[in-house]
């Protein structure tokens, strides 16, 4: 029962990072200069993200619901110790969710308002991606302490530090990378494709660089992440494979075959999946590390009656959701109409 829930949490997180992540990345991407292609780029992003925007966002809500229903203590510990970054993330989500839709559906499509929307969309996407990374980093630093003596130790120390900062940057870079790769296949305009390819390549370099920063920061401040990876061969293998796949990715991107958009998407998605898998393997089955020890998903699960109905809801829900999602993708993502 708990395994099914863990699978759903993992799958939802993964899909949120892959799908919601490219939405974040698209926002960050719009902050980058691209000269005369600006309007066209905005149009491509509207058309590519618009239909799937709300659906991509729900994976996060699904994680929250599974957590508070199935693992209430983990949820409340998280929401208490990480109150401030959660609030920052929420503020970003509100702004970007609103302005993305406003931009597309504003009756007046010219003039300064569009520039304001785009700027707000970009900044709030970068902001939210950053805080998402900070939250993830804070889970396993061992500084979450429900019995902390003062407010600083209880509500600020868990997330303030170099390592969360580095992981925040890393998250933003990963999202930008995903968006770049995804958008290449969303347009037939050669100049715009080259622009997206350049962004993806630069983001790939940034991912590796900020990944190095994450390693360095973790070594400086708490348990060294490289040492942890070395102790967990499977995680190391996943990370290594993700890095090696860069070669395959750029080989595929250079081969300008008709289907290469799909190939590069699959490879990039696989890379990010491997990174998340590696991260999960480092800590599984602990959801977080508190000062009093790890909070284990198996130990913190709600009573069996609750888990049974939650699993039932997820399975029955999947019967509705997956066919409809499939239909959504079939309608909008089959190209060459």
């Amino acid at each position: 029962m708990i395994d099914i829930l863990i699978f759903f949490i993992g799958a939802s997180l993964l899909l949120y990072v892959l799908l919601g992540g490219s939405d974040y990345g698209a926002g960050i991407l719009e902050l980058l200069p691209c000269g005369a292609l600006r309007e066209k780029r905005k149009h491509v992003i509207n058309e590519a993200m618009g239909p799937v925007w709300e659906a991509n966002h729900i994976w996060l809500i699904l994680v929250v619901v599974i957590l508070f229903n199935g693992f209430p203590r983990i949820f409340t510990t998280l929401m208490t110790a990480l109150h401030a970054p959660m609030l920052a993330l929420l503020a970003g989500i509100v702004v970007r969710g609103a302005v993305f839709t406003f931009r597309h559906h504003d009756a007046v499509q010219t003039g300064g308002s569009q520039r304001v929307y785009t700027l707000l969309f970009g900044c709030s996407s970068l902001w939210s991606a950053f805080w998402l990374g900070i939250i993830v980093a804070s889970l396993n630093r061992g500084l979450i302490d429900p019995a902390a003596p003062d407010a600083h130790a209880a509500y600020i120390a868990p997330w303030a530090g170099l390592y969360p900062l580095a992981l925040g940057l890393f998250a933003a870079c990963i999202f930008l990378f995903l968006a770049g790769i995804y958008l290449i296949g969303e347009t037939d305009d050669g100049a715009l494709r080259r622009h997206f390819t350049r962004v993806a390549a630069a983001a790939n370099v940034l991912v590796v660089a900020s990944g190095g920063l994450v390693f360095a920061a973790s070594t400086l401040e708490h348990e060294s992440l490289p040492a942890l990876f070395l102790r967990t061969p499977a995680a190391l293998a996943a990370l290594g494979l993700a890095t090696l796949l860069c070669i395959a990715l750029w080989a595929a991107a250079r081969a300008r075959r008709a289907r290469h958009a799909l190939v590069t998407r699959v490879i990039a998605g696989g890379q990010v999946t491997l990174i998340l898998l590696g991260w999960w393997l480092l800590y599984a089955p602990n959801a977080m590390l508190t000062a009093a020890g790890p909070l284990n998903l198996y130990a913190e699960a709600a009573p069996p009656a609750t888990l049974r109905q939650l699993v039932a809801a997820l399975l029955v829900g999947s019967l509705f959701i997956f066919p409809s999602l499939f239909f959504l993708l079939r309608v909008f993502k089959t190209r060459g109409k």
Binding site: W53, A55, V65, F68, T306, L310, L314, L325
Partner: peptide, 19 residues
Amino acid sequence: GMPFSWEGTAFFLEAVAIG
């Protein structure tokens, strides 16, 4: 949590449908 999980399911369907 049960009605929340069903609400989430319905909302998911709604989000796909609106797209």
